[in-house]
Design a protein around this nucleic acid. Structure first.
Lengths: 215, 215
DNA sequence: TTCAGAAAAATTTTCAATATTTTTATAGAC
DNA sequence: GTCTATAAAAATATTGAAAATTTTTCTGAA
């Protein structure tokens, strides 16, 4: 449920990467934590090599930083990092949305409506129990954003989006814990965004998407 | 000389990655080639694990594709791939240039002039001997493009740019071999681009950069 | 305090072996 | 002849242990 979208079979390396990714996202492994292989083995199991490879994988996603001969650390999560991620997500996702709106078909519009629907439903659940549904909520979030640019037919753009989304997760979940999210406002933006997409109003949609990406 | 920009000390894994990256870029390892660890050990040396890790590294850069339980392959290089890379590079680099022009200082302008100068010099050499200087020429190319967005202060944007540049290398070197590059036209575009940057004409610079990215 | 060198810790790398999975080859059924 | 199921072979994934490097920490002297 926390995995990547592709049909990646559950290799040991992928399982380990998923666990570490989740713990980094939730702050169990705080930013800048030194990731010593020996310690990690005690926590997650797996061989030294498998863990090493899992960390190498996460370093590609940007959640972990690798420096030669100095091992791995959890990536920093300063305000600068957050700003960098947000402005990049705005660029990447609006570009993707533009391309998708030029190429998208009815099927695409259908998938957007579906993921929109799911997002609304899970958000309602989240407001009842913020801790229980945090993961599902953010996964619905991810699915919705993936959907938006799905029709762009740019595999590399989608990979970049995914990487940035994973990196932003830490900040979003932190904001959720601190209860500073305005769900009503966000949902109203999402409603308008979907409407604009269906009405093929590109610039309106782009503007709304930019307002939506704030965490 | 073919390495990444950061001060990555020469670990075995990095050395192996550099060699494989070079061979992929030059087409010694053609697109879609199955990369069997055993074969690679014969060619490049190193232990199985080091090679595996090097391939995992390259898969992050997009030059190699990893599929679970099925090993590694050289990434495909179809016309669709090339188009995807080109249009993404245009988006990424123009965004970076915009940000850089908003934040850039005199030092940045100086570095641009320096890398521009180097690029002109090496292009002249290249026209004398296209095979001997291919690598140095593309490295100067890379340095110039890195320079353009250096002042954007977006580490993630620069990483994305680097990854896309590495991916585009195969196509550029192929075009060079096929002798379909118009150096005079390219250099004139570069001249105008640098002039526009120094004159702080953002939209003009962006337009020129887009015209420059065609391989 | 600062510096140099020794000691300790951690990372990187290699070798070797086992378990899984995928691919290939073969034989039989329709 | 094509296809399916099974067996064999090849390749990948995983683990363990140990040697070689490098970085970090510690200690004592100037």
């Amino acid at each position: 449920m926390f995995g990547r979208q592709k049909e990646e079979s559950a290799t040991v390396v992928n399982l380990l990467a998923n666990q570490v990714r989740r713990d980094i996202s939730f702050g169990v492994l705080p930013p800048d934590t030194k990731l010593k292989i020996a310690d990690l083995r005690g926590r997650y199991g797996g061989s030294a090599h498998s863990l090493r490879e899992a960390l190498r994988l996460l370093s590609n996603e940007g959640l972990v930083e690798a420096s030669a001969q100095r091992g791995f650390r959890v990536s920093s999560a300063t305000q600068d990092d957050q700003q960098d991620i947000i402005r990049l997500r705005r660029e990447i996702e609006t570009t993707g949305l533009r391309w998708a709106m030029e190429r998208g078909d009815l099927q695409w519009e259908g998938r957007i409506m579906a993921s929109h629907h799911a997002l609304k439903a899970i958000t309602a659940q989240l407001q009842q129990d913020p801790t229980e549904f945090a993961l599902d909520w953010d996964e619905a979030n991810r699915q919705f954003h993936i959907c938006l640019i799905e029709a762009s037919r740019s595999p590399r753009l989608m990979e970049i989006q995914n990487s940035l989304f994973e990196q932003s997760r830490r900040f979003r979940l932190a904001a959720l814990r601190e209860d500073v999210l305005d769900f009503d406002h966000t949902l109203s933006l999402v409603d308008k965004l979907v409407a604009a997409i269906l009405a093929k109003q590109q610039e309106e949609a782009v503007s709304l998407l930019q307002q939506l990406i704030i965490h």
